[in-house]
Simulated scan of single mutants.
Amino acid sequence: MANSAWGYGVPMISVVGDSFCVPYTMEITVKKRIQGFSKAHYDVFDSSGNLLLQIDGSVWKISKKRVMRDPTGIPLLTLKQTICNFGQSAKWRKVWTVHPGENSDDILFRVEERNPVQLKTRLDVFLPDNDNKKAGDFYVTGSFASLSFKAYKDKSPIAQVHHSYSWGSFCKGRESFKVRVQPEVDYSFIMALLVILEENEN
Rank of each mutant, 00 (worst) to 15 (best):
H99T: 00
A135M: 10
S47I: 06
M1E: 13
Q81E: 15
F45T: 05
P100C: 06
K178C: 06
S38A: 13
I74A: 03
W60R: 12
L108V: 10
K91H: 13
Y139A: 02
M191C: 13
L52T: 05
V111H: 00
K133Q: 14
K155R: 12
P23Q: 11
V22E: 14
V15L: 08
S148R: 14
V195C: 09
P116Y: 10
V125N: 02
L197R: 04
N103L: 03
I55N: 00
S47V: 06
D18Q: 13
V111D: 04
L119R: 14
D124C: 06
M191D: 03
P11Q: 14
N103S: 10
G17V: 05
I55K: 00
I83Y: 11
C171Y: 10
I13F: 03
I74C: 02
P75I: 00
F189C: 07
A192F: 04
G57F: 01
A145W: 11
K120P: 02
G9Y: 04
L79P: 01
G73E: 09
V22A: 11
K133F: 07
S148H: 14
E198G: 04
I28H: 03
D124T: 05
H41L: 11
E113C: 08
P116S: 13
S4E: 12
R122S: 13
I83A: 13
P128Y: 08
I34D: 02
A159I: 07
N202M: 09
I107N: 06
K94Y: 11
H163W: 07
A159D: 08
V16A: 03
I190F: 07
W6T: 07
N3F: 06
